[in-house]
Amino acid sequence: MVSLTLLAAFFLSMSVGRYAIGPLDILKLIAAKLGVGVDLGSSAAAMNTVFWSIRLPRTVLAIGVGAALGASGAVFQGLFRNPLVSPDILGVSSGAGFGAATAIMFLAGGGLAVQSMAFVFGIVGVFVAYSIAERSKESTIVVLVLAGIVVSAVFTAGLSFLKYIADPYEELPSIVFWTMGSFHAANWRDVVYSLPIVVMGVSLLSALGWRLNVMTMGDEEAMGLGVDVRKIRLFFIVVSTLIVASSISACGTIAWVGLVIPHIGRYLAGSDHKVLVPFCALLGGALLLLMDTLARMISTSEIPISIITSFIGAPFLAYLLLRKKAGVWYAA
């Protein structure tokens, strides 16, 4: 069902836009690429460029990022035993935001510099949070979350400072636009850098999904059941952080997806993380792609995607809360 949604979203996203391509044309373009002789008509060259160089990388990237956020959101909520957690909780987004702003202001090199700095600082943020928690007297989950909040606060303050001193005509708009996320500049390079990590990461997370069920019993029970809790937790944090950092470094921070997708997923597919994690990856890919399609359709200029995801995601969560069936979802 979700796979079908994803496929439909794919065709929709590929065809709509300022240069419309019909679904039939999409099949023809793919056939032509595969060497099957198909008549593409007069506008073949333009259509070919739009399709292969602009729209396809953008679509693929949106699916990948949605999958990363959805899967890691489900993993983090399970790992922290809390349905209010999103993948940002350990500071990956605020770290990435700070890194991107630093690159925009002080580094030449354009997109690639921004992407690398966002990736590196996203990972630095989580690393610092994890180290603080490890060094504390009681390395519990609560300490880890608090450390994440501390790191996020510091990086957010740093980002605010950078915004304050930024050139208001050139740098500030780029920073603001980055923190609201967008796929408008997506190209094949972004896809090549982030997609392999996302695909591998999501597969790894899904493979250990059942262990995550045991982890949601809490540390002591999981240990009693023979789980090396520290090692498994580190594994989940490292893999999730890698896929989230590589995703948002390609397109900027995206709000709400990592929080809402797992809720929808749990509502539809239940609490077994073995099923839930891959399910949330598919669902996240499909829904973020739809959101991105909306983002470029609503007005003549692009709308940053976080605006759309928040506008739709937040009320949707409220809707789920109101019609929650007892027991099927998580227990309060």
């Binding site: 399970g78 035993r81 809390n82 349905p83 949601t216 019993m217 809490g218 002591e220 029970e221 240990m223 009693g224 059941l225 023979g226 789980v227 749990r266 609490s271 027991g327 099927v328 979802w329 998580y330 227990a331």
Partner: peptide
């Protein structure tokens, strides 16, 4: 865990 099973007091779980 292969040698000893632990039965905790029943507590609330975040997921069902």
């Amino acid at each position: 865990a292969l040698a000893m099973a632990f039965v905790p007091q029943s507590t609330n779980l975040p997921f069902n």
